[in-house]
Simulated assay, not measured.
Amino acid sequence: MLTQEDLLNAVPNAMTSVDVAGLGEKQTGKVRDIYTLGDKRVLITTDRVSAFDSVVGAIPYKGQVLNQLSVWWFKQMEDIVANHLISAPDPNVTLAREADPLPVEIIVRGYITGVTSTSLWTLYNAGERKPYGISLPDGLKKDDPLPEPIITPTTKAEAGQHDERLTRDEILERGIVEPELYKKVEEAAIAVFKRGQEIAQKGGLILVDTKYEFGLIDGELALIDEINTPDSSRFWVAETYGKGEEPENFDKEYLRKWFKSVGYSGDGDIPAIPDEFAAELAGRYIAAYEKLTGETFVPGELPAQPRIQAALAGIAS
């Protein structure tokens, strides 16, 4: 684990974009760059953040943890479903094939929890016993494990109203995803989640719920985006679960709670994050990486452009 001094010295430190002159057309989006290399389009994800993207650079290595952890998870899941990863030529960056994303996000939940208007616990506590069209038994309490992991699908922001509550029947009736393909998505998502839970348990964490995105590459189903990271998933520290209080978070919820403690509700400018808290949060992200993978987190050093350029040139040739 990096020391607090190491972490403080890295605030702020983030590689936010790739600029490789003379190598195909480039587009830049919120969390990735896209290069068009001949008839190929390559997604380049750097040390940016996917949740609370306005704080990029304030929390050292946050984006690198997301990149490196996703790369590791993809390797653990290759026998279940294909993915879009090409390579990780540098700890700062991942290169991925462009996919045709499916217009749904797949939320897999292993516990009944959450506080938002669309969370399972909020709906269940209000009396719904078939949220998202899924039957739940009476008597569940907040943060209880579900009998089996369930899928609560939602629309992607680019494809309609974000966080629109969907059921499996609605997806099929509206033709959002055709039945045979959606069956494959469900099977892959549950299998990936269950393996994720097993791996997390070995590291002393509980994978509570997570978001998966799927797409098609040459007509075949592939897992895309980031996977089982502290920004895309909820992780509890196992030894704090079931103690009569809220379990300890090793995910973005810890930052959300800090925002709430300083009176920030999501409107207006994000408050400056003190270096000491940024280092603490970075330590939690890195600890999650190390608990899950069993490996020591090694940050990449800047500049990374020469290594990225060499990888892109290899794809273009």
Rank of each mutant, 00 (worst) to 15 (best):
L2V: 00
Q4A: 05
L7P: 03
L8W: 05
L8F: 09
T16G: 03
V18C: 06
V20M: 04
G22I: 14
Q27I: 04
V31I: 11
K40Q: 15
T46W: 00
I59F: 01
P60V: 15
S70M: 05
H84S: 09
L85D: 08
A99P: 05
L102Q: 12
V104F: 05
E105F: 12
I106P: 03
T113F: 07
T113N: 05
S117E: 15
W121A: 13
L123R: 13
P131F: 01
I134S: 06
L136C: 08
K141L: 08
P145N: 00
T155W: 02
G160I: 01
R165P: 08
R168F: 04
L172V: 00
G175I: 11
E180M: 07
E180Y: 04
L181E: 03
V185F: 03
A189N: 05
A189E: 06
I190R: 11
A191S: 15
V192A: 14
V192F: 11
R195N: 02
G196M: 02
I199H: 12
A200V: 04
G204A: 13
T210K: 14
F214C: 01
F214K: 07
D231F: 04
E239A: 14
K243R: 13
E245P: 02
E246R: 12
P247V: 00
E248H: 06
N249M: 02
F250S: 04
D251V: 01
Y254E: 14
K260M: 08
Y264L: 08
P274Q: 02
D275H: 09
E276F: 06
A282F: 01
Y285E: 13
I286K: 07
A288K: 00
E290N: 07
G294M: 03
V298Q: 06
P303M: 06
A304T: 09
A311M: 12
S317Y: 02
